[in-house]
Amino acid sequence: MKNESLYNYVLRLGDDSLILGQRLGEWCGHGPILEEDIAMTNISLDLIGQAMSLLDYAGEIDGNGKDHDALAFLRFENEYQNALLVEQPNGDFADTMMRQFLFDAFRQPLFEKLVHSSDAQLSAIAEKSLKETRYHLKHTSEWIIRLGDGTEESHTRAQKALDNLWRYTDELFSETSADLSLVTSGIVPSMVEIKEVWNKTVHAVFAEATLQIPTNNWQFEGGRRGVHSEHLGYLLADLQYMQRAYPNMKW
């Protein structure tokens, strides 16, 4: 492999997109209103599209001839490097919007920085994805404000979602020593910068939404090194079923 650090980095970006895209797709036909059903599946489609580009590129770096399908469908659970946040179950609409908002607020500044990557393909994928991510973040910010500053019921549910999901957010910004070497060579940005921007976004939106950030800051981690919550296995069983049951089948 010509660059294992870059491979892992790109794979993680791809896995975050893939797993969250699959989660959102579970809402198809179950959205609370038709417009939201369409919105969530549109965002899902963008994420799956990003996953295709990212996983193809990871396969290219790996040099073993694996394309996005091979990487999406034919790995074992501990080989996925997505953050724990994105594999958490959909829950109710507030849970899904909260998960998405926390993620979008992280992805937008990350792509903004990756556009300037010294790696041409990573920069191209970031440039493409950033335009889509801006629409996602706008959509989820609006929902967080509407739910938090809405009725008593919507506020309670949004607060509960935040209390539950906050403990998965630190992991988004974790960096391995291999990542730090990519930072030094100008290929990826430092997560410290990304977290600063993320903090500003989430604090501003939660203030307007009248939601409280939990004071207990105990955090989970593990997804980035392949140690997942029990939820990922079920998701993968769904995702991989067709390729495992009928190898190489095509639609």
Partner: peptide
């Protein structure tokens, strides 16, 4: 605007 997301990725409703 009814929704930022429409019948295809490139359209709003």
């Amino acid at each position: 605007m009814v929704s930022q997301f429409g019948s295809t990725a490139c359209k709003a409703h």
